[in-house]
Simulated scan of single mutants.
Amino acid sequence: MKKFVDPVKITGLNEPLFDSKKASFKVQEYFKKGFSLYAEGNRELAISLLSEPKEINATHLGLSKGASKGNGPSEEILDGVFQKITSEEFLRNSFMARPTLIPLFVPNFGADRFSDLTVNIISKELAEFTEKVCNELDIPVYLTGLCKYYDVSDGEWKQLIAKLPMGPDLKPILLVPAGLVTDKYKFSVEKFVNSVIFAYLKDEHLNRRSSLITYKEIDGVLTPVKPTNKMLKEHEILMKYKERGMFKAFALDKSLEYPHLLEQYISFIEDEKYQ
């Protein structure tokens, strides 16, 4: 089963050898910086900040095997999504407070890529954690360059030089605390669309007695029947969205149109069942 680094788990992590407080702060500051730059009109700087991270194979997490494919979201995709996000204060604040919402809306940016992004941001803290573990276990480490890490002091990406162990292939290994690893993210655009957005739209269609409403005789009374998810998918998504990542584009547009739906989904995810 594939594993991913979940940034939501950083704050509550109880691992003496890992600076979870600093790592959590860096994740929050990174996204705050990106959205602030975009909101101020510094598009090029914002896109550069958001698109800089690359896949780190040293953790041996995620989906890819072998070398990085380097095929994350394009500048055009990031630009279009963040234009919409920063145009609405509620969405902008929601994203800054909850970075895990990003894979919910950005095409070609799922759990694997968000895990890579998180690892990049906190790679310095992970490297320090790795060195501490190796020192405790008397595992030899070697000074090596690995990737770039996010420096909150100036909001820039810096080259990471760290003491890391080497695998049998003589490539560096970056350890990740088990408490940060998950099988899948709780946030899912499919769940958001099917369980929240479609549920709301079904009532809307029923109230308007739209063309998607069918009728069924129940106890001699002709009763209106709400459209199915399949009907809504055809009518609301497939007929209106032709671009790649249509589910995510639809979910973002509906979040702009009905902000309370995103609030509802966030509340559902962040209740005690999520922990």
Rank of each mutant, 00 (worst) to 15 (best):
41 G>V: 07
41 G>H: 00
41 G>F: 03
42 N>Q: 06
42 N>D: 03
42 N>R: 07
42 N>G: 02
43 R>T: 13
43 R>G: 06
44 E>S: 04
44 E>Y: 01
44 E>A: 03
44 E>P: 03
46 A>N: 06
46 A>S: 15
46 A>G: 13
46 A>W: 02
47 I>W: 03
48 S>D: 15
49 L>H: 04
49 L>G: 08
49 L>P: 01
50 L>Y: 02
50 L>K: 04
50 L>T: 02
50 L>W: 05
51 S>V: 04
52 E>Y: 01
52 E>I: 03
52 E>K: 07
53 P>N: 01
54 K>M: 02
55 E>N: 05
55 E>H: 06
55 E>V: 11
56 I>P: 02
56 I>C: 09
56 I>H: 00
57 N>Q: 13
57 N>K: 07
57 N>A: 15
57 N>E: 12
57 N>R: 07
57 N>Y: 08
58 A>W: 09
58 A>P: 12
58 A>L: 11
59 T>L: 02
59 T>F: 04
59 T>N: 02
60 H>E: 11
60 H>A: 08
60 H>T: 08
60 H>R: 12
61 L>E: 10
61 L>M: 10
61 L>N: 11
62 G>F: 13
63 L>N: 06
63 L>Q: 10
63 L>T: 11
64 S>T: 13
64 S>Q: 10
64 S>F: 10
65 K>C: 01
65 K>I: 12
65 K>W: 12
66 G>L: 11
66 G>Q: 11
66 G>H: 09
66 G>M: 13
67 A>F: 12
67 A>G: 01
68 S>R: 09
68 S>L: 05
68 S>W: 00
68 S>E: 07
69 K>G: 12
69 K>A: 10
70 G>H: 11
70 G>E: 10
71 N>M: 14
71 N>L: 15
71 N>T: 11
72 G>K: 05
73 P>R: 06
73 P>F: 07
73 P>L: 12
73 P>A: 15
73 P>D: 09
74 S>T: 15
75 E>F: 14
75 E>G: 11
76 E>V: 13
76 E>P: 02
77 I>C: 02
77 I>N: 00
77 I>L: 06
